[in-house]
Amino acid sequence: MGALAYSLEQALLSLWRGRGASLLSIATITLALFVLGAFLLVTLNVQRLVGAWRGSAELSIYLQDEATPAERTAVEHLLDASPFVAAHDYVSKSQAEKRFAALFPDLAGLSGEPAGNPFPASIEVRLRSGPGTEGAVDALAGRLRAAAGVSDVRYDRRWIDRLVTLAGIVGAVGLLLVTVLSVAGALSVAIVVRLALFARRDEVEIMRLVGAPLSYIRGPFVTEGLLHGGVGALIAIGLLLAGLVAVRAEYGLAVQAALGLAPIWLLPLRLCGLVVVGGMVVGGIGGLVAAWSSR
């Protein structure tokens, strides 16, 4: 406990004394964790979006305007016969128009063109997931396209999967970037702490000679690294929050409307905690590397 209190006291003093150099390493860690946070934020929201879309209509069948009730019933029979269809809903032309007006109130006037309602009637199909779904649904989509009264079939899952793949690639690139930035962060902390150690080398030598335990000699430098990382992480989270608030204020409604998603999320508290811990680990490693040289 004594060593801990001493380390914290000395680390805070050292941070204050070397605030110029400390700012540099804190900025590097902030950048690394801001990028990490941003990637986590995007990944998390994309996952949420994909989840929401997966749960909603995955197969959309657009009917021709001149499709007869018998042709629509035939299509619905085809759907009922498939074990991969969980549910289906008919959306009439007027319902589609109302939905558009609700989603895009500014553009609602456009649909009242003299030519009439431009939106096609459709059947929205929710699919069951499971092994072999994709191939079976492909075959079903092919049969539906060939059915009378059908103008187009959109199988959403394919581009959702593409979105997931893209999110995966973005995540991997992010991970690589974060790793590089984290190493840079740890190195910059190590350099700054080494500088602090160099400035206090006489003091460290005296401490060694009077028999100070190693925890008293190295502790302040490791703690200084931890503080660099922790402060950097808190600033990164603050910046993310500020950025998110700004994005939400500027584009929130448009994104919400376009994607059919509730407001964009910030990182959950647990992930924020992990980001702070991650920052402290990076800073602590830097501090430890520097402190180890103090024999």
Binding site: D202, E205, I206, R208, L209, V210, G211, A212, P213, L214
Partner: peptide, 16 residues
């Protein structure tokens, strides 16, 4: 370090 704490050492250059 524990051994050093059991002895007292006085240096020529004081080391304060």
């Amino acid at each position: 370090q524990a051994y050093r704490r059991t002895i007292g050492f006085v240096f020529q250059d004081f080391k304060l």
